[in-house]
């Protein structure tokens, strides 16, 4: 799936690979700092994504394909 925004999962994967690179220490200082900056940005974005998104409202698809909020009938 080609995405306009980077998926959360891809961010985590990229983050992990950058950290592994930094931990191996085979990069130049400039490169490391550049990578660190990028990784910090990813950490922040992931954090935001987990913190700021409000609890999602469940949706139900109607026969015509439209979405509507969905609440379970509270019967117990």
């Amino acid at each position: 799936m080609a995405e306009k925004k980077q998926k959360f999962e891809d961010k985590i994967t990229e983050l992990e690979s950058i950290i592994n690179e930094l931990e191996n220490g085979n990069t130049t200082l400039e490169d490391s700092i550049e990578k660190y900056t990028k990784a910090m940005k990813l950490v922040k974005e992931c954090d935001e994504q987990l913190k700021n998104v409000e609890e999602q409202v469940n949706k139900i698809v109607l026969e015509n394909g439209k979405l509507e909020d969905f609440k379970l009938e509270d019967n117990n």
């Binding site: 930094l22 220490g25 990784a39 954090d47 987990l50």
Partner: peptide
């Protein structure tokens, strides 16, 4: 969240080590 916190710690330790 814990995992991301771990990643952040590892990231900081990694760059500190290099610097």
């Amino acid at each position: 969240k814990k995992h991301i916190e771990q990643l952040r710690i590892r990231l900081n330790e990694g760059i500190l080590k290099i610097v």
